[in-house]
Simulated scan of single mutants.
Amino acid sequence: MPGACVVGATGLVGRALVAQLVQDKAVDAVHLMVRRVDVGFAASGQAKVVQHVIDFDQIAQADWPACEVLFCCLGTTIKTAGSQAAFRRVDVDYVIASARRARQTGATQLAVVSALGASPTSDVFYNRIKGEMEGAVASLGFHGVTIVRPSLLDGDRKEMRPAERVALLLMKIGKLFVPKKYRAVTVAAVASALRASAQLGRQGVHIIESDQLQTA
């Protein structure tokens, strides 16, 4: 993997993925597409990490580096976004625009984070939006598309939401009684699945469900 682009690098999965890509000797360069320079990445001293500041509302005009793979870890919540429309802009519009721009500049593989239960026909708004995103990026002409659908993410969030804390605690306590598909998934496992699948260079669309991400 000569070069990789990461969108959503400052998020929970994105940071775990960047850490893995930096340690991967098969990756020559890691290009982070960000709203602003992240001091954490800047201070890491990793020569292979390059930050590109872009306007996500003008992705089509962004100066996009040529990469073989685009990893898309973009995602927000309706509460954080402020409305369903704003949520859709991030989780659908920005993802599609990033994928389209990366494809235009030579990317052949796409690996994207979706969600458990994603379906364009779902009655649940969040799942329906994720399903719409999946269908859109799969039609952009990439040689290979990997879609990872994790359940609740287990990681060191800067702002852990109370409901998520309770859900994670209950899942850990009653792990043996929770179906594998619905158990919390570590962000490291999600990042590993994204990286490994993209490196295989397979053709077509490949979906990795949450139960396949379980490490134990």
Rank of each mutant, 00 (worst) to 15 (best):
P2G: 15
P2Y: 04
A9P: 02
A9E: 09
A16N: 10
D24K: 08
D28V: 11
A29V: 10
D38K: 08
G40S: 11
A42T: 13
G45R: 12
G45M: 11
V50N: 06
V53W: 08
F56T: 09
I59V: 15
I59M: 12
Q61D: 15
Q61A: 15
A66R: 01
F71I: 06
C73H: 10
R89H: 15
R89V: 03
R89I: 02
D93I: 01
D93Q: 12
A99P: 07
Q104S: 12
G106E: 14
A111P: 07
A118V: 08
P120L: 10
Y126H: 08
N127M: 01
R128T: 09
R128Q: 14
A136F: 04
A138W: 00
G141C: 13
H143I: 14
V145F: 01
S151T: 05
L153R: 04
R157C: 08
R157I: 07
K158R: 12
M160D: 01
M160G: 02
A163E: 12
V166N: 01
I173P: 01
G174P: 03
L176I: 08
V187D: 15
S192K: 15
A193R: 12
L194C: 09
R202N: 06
V205D: 00
V205F: 03
E209Q: 08
Q214A: 05
